[in-house]
Design a protein around this nucleic acid. Structure first.
Lengths: 267, 267
DNA sequence: CGACTTTTTGACACGAGTCAAATCTAGTGG
DNA sequence: CCACTAGATTTGACTCGTGTCAAAAAGTCG
C-alpha cells in the first residue's frame, strides 16, 4: 500500500478523474465535494480514518465528485488490479466493501434529509452529533470531545448555508451551553440536548454492536471499521477538554428564561 | 419473481423494516423518503422502471429509509436467499448490482448539491432534466416529453422546499416557456434553456453509451438498465403532447424584455 | 512583526415558509 | 351524465430564515 500526504485544501482526486487506485484515510479528515457552475461548493461527505472514500471508482469509470484534504491528511492507496485480485479471491471482502459503499449512501440520504428539512441550527447540531459519533467509533473521540479542525466555511459547504450564517448559528449553540468549539477542539457539554435539537438517531450510520453513542458510557476499544493504522495519539493541543460548562444566564436576578432557541421545537 | 401492485401513496417498505426480499420497479414511479421527528418529509430518490430500490437491504440489516408508490406501481421481488445464490454463482452479476447501488449514491450526491447550492428555480429545473433523461434511458420518454404524475407536493418533498413554493417556481418555468406540465404530462419546450437554468450535466447518472440526452436526437431503442418488462404502452391520457409552445410575451407592442427570470444567471 | 486566513458582527435584501381562501380536477355514487 | 367530495393547484399577504456586503477583531505562520 502506497501512502501519500496532503495539506489542508489540497485535492486528492477531482471530479472526472479516472483514478487507478483505491484510497483509504489513514489519518486526518477528508471531504468529498461537488461544485456548481456558478461556483457553489457542496461537501457531500466527510471521511474519518478508516473510511474508504471514492471506492466507487473501482466500478464506475469516472469519479463524479472530488476529494480534498480538510486537515493534514495521510492517504493509503492500492492499485485497482490488486484490489480486484483481492476481491476475487475473497468474496467476503467484496461484501464488506460493498457494505461500506452502501453505508456511504445511507449517510448521503441522511444529509439530504438534514439539509432539506431542518433549519441551520438543527443541521449544525446534527453534523456535530454525526462526526462525534463516527470519531468515537474509531476511537478518536472520548468523553464527548474530539479534535475538530473544520473551518466554519467548510461546515457551511456541508450544510448548504453560508459561512456567515454558520457563525451565527454556532453562536447560538454556544450561548445555549450545548457545545464549545475552538482551538481545534469540539466539546459537547449536553449531548442529550444537542441530539434532541439535531433530531439525531445514529441508526443510519449502521454501526455494528453498540459503538453508536447512546449515553455517557465510553465506547469500547477500537472501532469496527478497519482503521488499520489508528492515528498516533497526538497530545490534544487545544484547551484540555473538560472545560467548565458555559452556563447560559447565571448572573441575572429573576428567573431568566432559556436564551430562547428552543423555539423551533414547539411542535 | 413475485409481483405486487401498489396504489399511489402506499408504502412498499418502511424505515427500520428488515425486508427479506429485493425489489425492482416493473412499472410506475416509486420514491424513497425519510422523515424528521417534526414531521418533515424528504424524498431522497425517485425510482423508474428498471431500478432496484433498497437493494442495500441485502447487506445492511435494517432499512434506513422508506419506499412508497408515487403512481400506481408494480414491483417485482425476489427472496434474499435466491438473490444471494445468484450473486454467488455469477460474480459478474454481483458487480452489476454493486454498480447499481453506487450509481444510486451518485444521484444522492448530486441531489445534495442541487438542494444545497441552487435556488428552487434551478432545483426544479434540474429534477425535470434528471427525470426526463432517466425515463428516456428506459424508453419511457420521447421527444422531450413524458408521462409525469408527480404531485407538486411530492416535488416539494424532493427539493426540500414547500409545495406552495414549488407552485410559484413552476409558474415561472411555464411563464418562461420552458416547460408545460399538466394532465399527467411533462413537456420540455426548450431543453437547452432548461438544462442551462438547472446547471444540468448528466455525467452523474453514469449512463453508458450515450443514451444521456445532449441534443434533439431521439434516443435509441431500449435503455441499458434491465427494464425486463417495459410498461405496456398506454395511450397518453392527457392532452396529446406536442402542445403549442406557450411563447412568453408575444402580444405586447414594444420590445418586451424576457419575463425576468434569467436573473440568477448574472455571474 | 507583516501578510493572510478565519471568525464575528451589523445592516439590509430577498428567497422561501406560513396561513388562508379560492379554484380546479379526478373519482365516486346516484 | 351529473351532482358531490377529497385532493391538488393557485394566489395573495405577511413573516422569517438566510444570503449579501462590509469591515473590524482574532488567530496563524514564516
Amino acid at each position: 500500500m502506497q501512502v501519500s500526504a496532503y495539506e489542508p485544501h489540497q485535492d486528492v482526486v477531482v471530479e472526472n478523474d479516472r483514478p487507478a487506485r483505491c484510497f483509504t484515510v489513514l489519518d486526518g479528515i477528508a471531504a468529498a465535494y461537488k461544485t456548481t457552475n456558478e461556483g457553489g461548493r457542496q461537501v457531500t461527505a466527510f471521511y474519518v480514518p478508516g473510511d474508504v472514500p471514492g471506492f466507487q471508482c473501482l466500478q464506475l469509470e469516472v469519479l463524479d465528485f472530488s476529494i480534498a484534504a480538510v486537515t493534514t491528511l495521510r492517504i493509503g492507496s492500492v492499485g485497482h488490479d490488486a484490489v480486484r485480485g483481492m476481491l476475487a479471491a475473497h468474496p467476503r471482502l467484496a461484501d464488506a466493501f460493498w457494505r461500506t459503499t452502501l453505508i456511504e449512501g445511507s449517510l448521503a440520504r441522511e444529509w439530504l434529509l438534514n439539509n432539506g428539512r431542518r433549519e441551520a441550527y438543527g443541521r449544525l447540531a446534527h453534523l456535530f452529533c454525526e462526526l462525534l459519533t463516527r470519531l468515537e467509533a474509531v476511537d478518536l473521540a472520548h468523553g464527548r470531545a474530539c479534535d475538530f479542525r473544520l473551518t466554519q466555511s467548510e461546515l457551511a459547504d456541508a450544510l448548504g448555508v453560508t459561512a456567515v450564517h454558520v457563525n451565527r448559528v454556532l453562536k447560538e449553540l454556544r450561548d445555549q451551553g450545548l457545545i464549545t468549539l475552538g482551538g481545534g477542539r469540539l466539546v459537547i457539554h449536553d449531548w442529550d440536548a444537542l441530539a434532541e435539537a439535531a433530531d439525531f438517531d445514529p441508526a443510519y450510520l449502521h454501526l455494528r454492536r453498540d459503538d453508536a453513542r447512546t449515553d455517557a458510557a465510553v465506547i469500547g476499544p477500537g472501532g469496527h471499521r478497519g482503521a488499520r493504522e489508528p492515528s498516533p495519539s497526538k497530545p490534544a493541543p487545544g484547551p484540555t477538554w473538560p472545560l467548565p460548562v458555559p452556563v447560559a444566564a447565571t448572573s441575572g436576578t429573576g428567573p431568566r428564561t432559556q436564551p430562547d432557541r428552543p423555539r423551533p421545537r414547539p411542535a
